[in-house]
Design a protein around this nucleic acid. Structure first.
Length: 939
RNA sequence: GCAGGGGUACCCGAGCGGUCAAAGGGGCAGGGCUUAGGACCCUGUGGCGUAGGUCUUCGAGCGUUCAAAUCGCUCCCCCUGCACCA
């Protein structure tokens, strides 16, 4: 027998499918199913992790196709934003890793040079995704619907979307703060560090800047994350090593660090840096006044006041800030801390107590000090209450007061805010990245109460997998805040219709995009021009407003009416808090309710070993093409589907993938084997096989209907072959039946391993695509309970015999199987019936049995047996109950399996009824015989 | 900080009130096959048992229940996402 040449088989069928256009979405049955995956951003080569979700999508689409749906499975590319630009920049600056990667893909230098243009990057990778990933994996994507988010038609679509949002009053303007490089303009600060060379994981912190005043009215701006502690200020810290800068902010004169002055230029209005400095040392012996409470406090030297953080000037709250406490001790100043927060578990000075607890001795122990700060802060935030020192705020919990104090101070012009990165951020150009205020940024108003409520109500009606996410979603929708939607910089995307030169950011331009898949084929085939795509056009297509200008408009309109809404949008867990919420909210805002998405499917990731996200820098995973070559596409598809729940991260592990490769091989051989079985009559077995396969089909289709792909795969690839193997081992040999079952199994495996399926289907003489065949359904006619119970009984007997042999280590010569007497079976069944109605009535059962004079002789035995029944019966589940209720002649059934038992145990088998005359039973085993649990005696 | 997920036998991983000593893979041990070979098929793999049994186990500890890996509470430990990155 030849080995399974999966690569040639894959190519063969992929070509045939596409040549015959079976992937095309067509309107034929009247039942439609629209599924797509969250389209990938164009950021470079993908890895085996990405294929997980794509594969799920294809499997579901194929299953639906086989159950009579017209399936729409399109795909596109999210080309907007930064990734392709970042890639082009890397090529331009001749980043060695990038160049090496491209050369590994056998690209010429001339071609690589064209990739300095982000548009070429998009074109190149779009082609790679289609040819090397999607087609290579046998996906039946309708490739005529391909689109990218930077095409002119798509841009028209997005402008329409934003005009709709505008008329719905969901576009608003307000100030915004964003990372900005003085040289390069706006930059993205993110962990992948496309734009920045360090500080990618920095967060933006919001400091409150409190305006302390010197005697002459000059402002000493102290920056804090805890404005409510203003009531506990005992002194000020100024770094004697630092030369401070004087600046003018509006009419006010401020003193702050030089670094701070530069930052404030970007964040506040009317900032002038004066040509005037003052040394930190000059503050020695001076005092300043605390705003709001107008207390005069001394200024002390504090070397820990870092000029690069916020203003470089720090207020001191020694009762609540461990750093301040330790610095105060070091300074030797005679100052009593003021405790302003009552908190459980701490006494008069929480900061001191935390320091003592961690045994902190001086200002240098920053790790411990950070820990102490964290400890105090958390405790105070959650359980602290402001005390009588806090005037009007006394008695209020910290968690409730934070913003109130800050807002009141700002309202009274006693404070302002300043944003700062949690760590230093350096641009690729080596410049420090700052935070810049954009005074009139545009936002989509996702905080809108009406929109939020409508979206939550709508989400409640959706099919969402996993269900945990469905429960989480209302909270996410509520939490989702206004989103800044435009940028000025080197980004790809659509121009914002209300501000020239500004580009809509990538999250906001991919919220309604599945609708564009309906239009895409008409644009791609030039049946529709970009110029035609006016407001009027989109209003007509999507909102059914107005009239068609020509036949194509009408056709597209009807297509939309047929295919929309989306039934399943499938995406990775990273989309839970960003893409999926805006996807829902924009649909709810703009589309009519009946066109809003029907379902979401969220899958987790493939990680590297050690649960780390796959990344090239950490060794990465195998490239997709290489993996397809090594394991075979079907093996990988099965691997993704079966290796774990879709809702957990799986670790890429080559050994494991190999097992699935073997599993595909096993299946292939099984199909070869069953074509050449020895004919043999055994009606019991034939019925059992049909019945068992049929039951499994029910499990499979139920699993598929609820998108439980793993359960479906488990049953198809592990349970079904077991059925066949048992059948063959038991001596089954109905060639017609086996061929028939074989074809059923081929259809069952098709959604998951379509290439193997087509190949074997063809070997069975079929001339059509199994991909187009209908999926097997459960057939209530094919149900042979007797045979099911019979084989169950046999398997149980074999188990018991093995158990006994194991314990006793006997080599058997004779094996006696004693079937329970008739009366036990009927009493047992009666007990089950009673239990189903309520509870088992022992007395009644005994009485009933004793009514038979023959049985009355057995009095004691009956009483004993019946006495145990309530416990026995309670332990049975429904399947078991059904088994016991099924009438079966155990003796006859087992007698047909004597040959099998004989070969299994290589000894003489005797099947005996309890009521047989001249029963050979030397140690009186018969009395232990129970229904479906014969007694056994071995010699 | 906000939110979500998880800890299961040597390992990976299902189960999520009775069918559970706990699926399915691996790994390991024994046997078969004598070659479809980076295989395949049986059997075993918590302890104790010369009769199909029994005892102890599902992060720790309480509790609910006739019955808990599964439900509730407390604690310990791990992981993930968080908006201008998609």
């Amino acid at each position: 027998m030849a080995t399974y040449e999966y690569e040639s088989v894959e190519t063969k069928w992929q070509q045939r499918w596409l040549q015959n256009h079976i992937n095309k979405a067509e309107h034929t049955t009247g039942k439609k199913f629209f599924i797509h995956f969250a389209y990938p951003g164009v950021s470079g080569y993908l890895h085996v992790g990405h294929m997980r979700g794509f594969t799920y999508t294809d499997i579901i689409a194929r299953y639906k196709r086989m159950t009579g749906y017209d399936v729409m499975f399109p795909a596109g590319f999210h080309a907007s934003g930064i990734p392709s630009v970042g890639f082009a920049k890397k090529v331009e600056r001749k980043d060695p890793d990038t160049l090496q990667l491209l050369k590994q893909h056998k690209l010429s230098d001339t071609f690589i040079n064209t990739l300095t243009d982000p548009h070429n990057v998009v074109d190149y990778f779009s082609k790679v995704y289609v040819d090397e990933y999607w087609k290579r994996f046998g996906f039946l994507i309708d490739y005529e619907r391909q689109m990218t988010t930077i095409s002119p038609g798509y841009q028209r679509f997005i402008q329409w979307q934003f005009q709709k949002l505008h008329t719905l009053n969901l576009l608003i303007q307000k100030p915004h703060f964003a990372p900005y490089c003085p040289n390069c303009g706006p930059v993205a600060v993110d962990k992948s560090e496309t734009d920045v060379s360090s500080g990618g994981s920095a967060e933006i912190l919001e400091f409150t800047v409190l305006k302390f005043t010197l005697k002459d009215g000059t402002i000493l701006p102290a920056a804090t994350l805890r404005p409510e502690t203003i009531f506990g200020v005992t002194n000020m810290w100024i770094n004697p090593q630092v030369n401070y800068q004087k600046i003018k902010v509006g009419e006010e004169l401020w003193i702050c660090s030089e670094e701070c002055a530069k930052k404030l230029l970007y964040q506040l209005e009317n900032v002038d840096i004066l040509d005037d400095h003052i040394s930190g040392k000059d503050f020695e012996g001076k005092t300043c006044t605390v705003p709001l409470i107008n207390r005069e406090v001394p200024i002390l030297a504090g070397e820990f006041a870092d000029p690069s953080i916020a203003t470089g000037i720090v207020m001191s709250v020694p009762a609540h800030a461990p750093y301040d406490w330790i610095a105060l001790v070091d300074s030797g100043a005679k100052i009593t801390p003021i405790k302003i927060i009552d908190v459980m578990g701490f006494g008069d000075n929480p900061a001191k107590e935390a320091c003592d607890q961690l045994n902190i001795k001086n200002q240098k122990e920053t790790d411990k000090l950070d820990e102490a700060t964290d400890l105090v802060y958390k405790k105070e935030f959650h359980t602290g209450v402001l005390n009588d020192y806090c005037g009007a705020y006394a008695g209020i919990k910290i968690s409730d007061i934070k913003d109130t104090v800050k807002n009141d101070l700002i309202a009274g012009n006693l404070a302002t805010t300043m944003r700062e990165f949690s760590e230093e951020v350096i641009c690729r150009c080596k410049e420090h990245v700052v935070i810049k205020r954009i005074p009139d940024q545009w936002f989509i108003k996702y905080s809108d109460d009406q929109l939020t409520a409508n979206s939550q109500r709508y989400a409640d009606s959706m099919h969402i997998y996993p269900s945990e996410y469905k429960e989480e979603l209302p909270g996410v929708l509520d939490w989702f805040d206004d989103r800044a939607v435009i940028r000025k910089g080197s980004w790809l995307g659509t121009e914002f219709p209300y501000k020239k030169g500004w580009i809509i950011e990538p999250i906001s331009d991919s919220t309604l995009y599945p609708a564009y898949y309906i239009i895409a084929p008409y644009i791609n085939s030039n049946q529709l021009t970009v110029e035609e795509m006016t407001q009027e056009f989109f209003d007509y297509i999507f909102l059914d407003k107005g009239h068609p200008k020509n036949q194509i408009w009408k056709t597209i309109h009807d297509d939309f009416a047929y295919w929309y809404p989306v039934d399943i949008n499938l995406g990775g867990k990273e989309h839970k808090t960003v893409h999926f919420p805006v996807y829902i909210m924009n649909h709810v805002a703009i589309m009519p309710p009946e066109k809003c998405p029907q379902g979401l499917f969220v899958h987790w990731w493939v990680t590297q070993q050690g649960k780390e996200k796959i990344s090239k820098s950490k060794g990465g995973a195998e490239p997709i093409l290489e993996a397809a070559h090594t394991y075979g596409v079907d093996a990988m598809r099965l691997y993704y589907t079966h290796v774990g729940s879709p809702f957990v991260d799986i670790e890429w592990d080559t050994e494991t993938v190999l097992k699935y490769k073997n599993r595909v091989g096993i299946l292939w051989r099984l199909f070869q084997e069953i074509k050449h079985i020895q004919p043999h009559e055994n009606q019991n077995l034939d019925r059992w096989l049909q019945s068992s396969i049929n039951n499994h089909i029910q499990i499979i289709t139920t699993a598929f209907e609820s998108y439980d792909l793993r359960m479906a795969a488990n049953t198809i690839f592990f349970e079904l072959p077991k059925d066949l193997q048992w059948y063959l081992r038991r001596g089954g040999g109905n060639t017609n039946l086996v061929a028939d079952i074989g074809k059923k199994i081929i259809r069952l495996i098709t959604p998951i391993t379509p290439h193997l399926a087509e190949e074997v289907w063809e070997q069975y003489g079929e001339t059509t695509f199994v991909s187009n065949a209908s999926y097997p359904l459960y057939d209530s006619v094919i149900s042979y309970k007797t045979e099911e119970v019979g084989e169950y009984l046999l398997a149980g007997v074999i188990n018991d015999i093995n158990e006994i042999l194991k314990v006793t280590k006997i080599t058997p010569t004779h094996l006696y199987i004693y079937i329970a007497p008739e009366w036990k079976q009927s009493v047992f069944q009666e007990a089950i019936r009673q239990a189903q109605k309520g509870s088992v009535n022992v007395a009644a059962l005994i009485k009933q049995s004793m009514a038979d004079p023959e049985l009355k002789k057995l009095g004691k035995e009956i009483a004993q047996f019946v006495g145990k029944l309530p416990g026995e019966v309670r332990r049975l589940n429904e399947t078991d109950q059904q088994r016991y209720l099924t009438h079966i002649d155990e003796k006859t059934y087992l007698s047909t399996a004597v040959d099998y038992l004989t070969t299994l145990f290589s000894c003489e088998i005797h099947i005996c009824g309890a009521d047989d005359t001249n029963l050979y039973d030397p140690v009186i085993k018969v009395r232990f015989a129970l229904p479906l649990r014969p007694a056994i005696y071995i010699e």
